[in-house]
Simulated assay, not measured.
Amino acid sequence: MNTPLLILTLTLHLISGDCRAPNFGSPGNTLNVSCHYAAKYANMQKHFCKVMEDGQCSMRVSSRENISDTTQNHSRFSLTDYPQQMNFTVRLSHLRAEDTGVYLCGAQNPEPPFNRVLVGDETHIIVNPVIGHKGDEAKLRCPYEVGHQTYLKYLSRGECASTGYVLIKTELRRQARASQGRFSLQDEREGRVFSVTISNLTAEDSGKYCCGIETLDNDVLIELLLTVALASTSPSHTSGPYTSRPSLHSLPAITAEYLAGSAVVMSVLRVVVMLLFALGVAVFFRCRRTQPPQVLRVTQVPEDSSQNHADPIYQELD
């Protein structure tokens, strides 16, 4: 039985608004991000952190040490400082969908007091495409700027340049969640990322989407291309009522165990047969020794004149 897979490719790009263009990367690939700073921060330690749902900035890497990613047992983030050029570069490898978000570049005094300061502009990273399975769900993440926390968010179907059909939208400024059919919106205001989850994915979900934030001036829009491609798992070799036989590579362990057991059984049966044969022979000869043989003799009766042909009489003699 073929299991269709749904591959969703989301290509995002900034359409309008005062936001800086985000940095895009593909899952599993590498992305380089540059952070510029003033000359007075040249001798300070540098770091790169991600703004989390609770508003705290979680350290990803610093010039002092690389923070290891325990789920992969190696560091996916590395930092290289170029003091003469007054910038440092962060390299993100093996990108994942959850790497999408808002990041901050910072500096810290190498000696007490260990004051941390932000340097340069904040960085928005978006990882695409997002891959999902038919019948499952996919999450579309959209980071945004400081000050847009209470603005209305929405997701529409179609190009951002045209008026598309709004699939889901927050109706009140204080509203952080919304739900409409298969679509649900969650605004993580502390982390400054709002996401739309599409459940029960189908092939018809393919097309362009527009992720938007209503501002006092022009809306901040990000266009998303949702590409649905059907793929198949490994083909089945069954046909009709017949089933495929197991591969020979899966048999050695079972065969060895089976043969070992069969050898033991055959040895036991061989011994039992030999014992039964020997017992039968012994009983046969014992019976012949204990029972005397019976002898049959023939006695000729004299001829009678009235009888021409007389039958012999058999007598049993001891």
Rank of each mutant, 00 (worst) to 15 (best):
G132K: 05
S162W: 08
T163E: 13
D136G: 14
V119Y: 07
I168D: 03
N128Q: 15
Y144N: 07
R177W: 08
G191D: 02
F183D: 04
G135L: 08
Y165E: 14
I168S: 02
L152M: 03
G164Q: 09
I168V: 14
V127L: 01
E122H: 07
D187T: 03
L152R: 06
E159M: 13
T163H: 10
R174Y: 11
R177T: 15
C142H: 14
T170H: 00
Q175E: 10
I125W: 04
V166G: 03
G132L: 08
L167H: 06
K134I: 14
R189G: 02
C160K: 05
G132S: 15
G132H: 09
R157H: 14
R141Y: 12
F194R: 00
V130S: 15
V166K: 04
Y151W: 06
R141Q: 10
L172G: 00
E171I: 05
Q186R: 06
S184D: 12
H124D: 02
Y165G: 06
Q180D: 15
Y144E: 02
T150K: 07
S162L: 14
G135V: 11
Q175R: 04
S199G: 09
S199Q: 14
L140F: 15
R173L: 03
Y165D: 14
K153C: 08
I125C: 08
A176W: 00
L167Y: 03
A176C: 06
C142P: 04
I131S: 12
V196Q: 01
K134N: 12
F183P: 04
Q186I: 09
S184F: 07
R192T: 00
E171W: 03
V146Y: 09
L185N: 06
V127F: 05
V127N: 01
L140I: 15
S162C: 06
R141H: 13
R177H: 13
R192V: 00
K153W: 11
V130M: 14
R192W: 01
G181P: 08
H124C: 01
C142A: 12
A176L: 04
V196H: 01
Y154Q: 11
A161T: 12
T123Y: 03
E159F: 14
L167T: 03
I198M: 12
R189H: 00
H133W: 11
E159W: 11
T170M: 01
I125F: 03
I168P: 08
S179L: 07
S184Y: 09
Y151A: 05
I126A: 03
Y151D: 08
R182H: 10
V166W: 03
Q149L: 04
E190N: 11
S162R: 05
R189A: 00
G135F: 04
F183L: 05
A161S: 15
R174L: 08
S184W: 09
R192G: 02
A138S: 10
T170G: 04
R189S: 01
E190T: 02
Q175T: 04
Y151I: 00
K139Q: 13
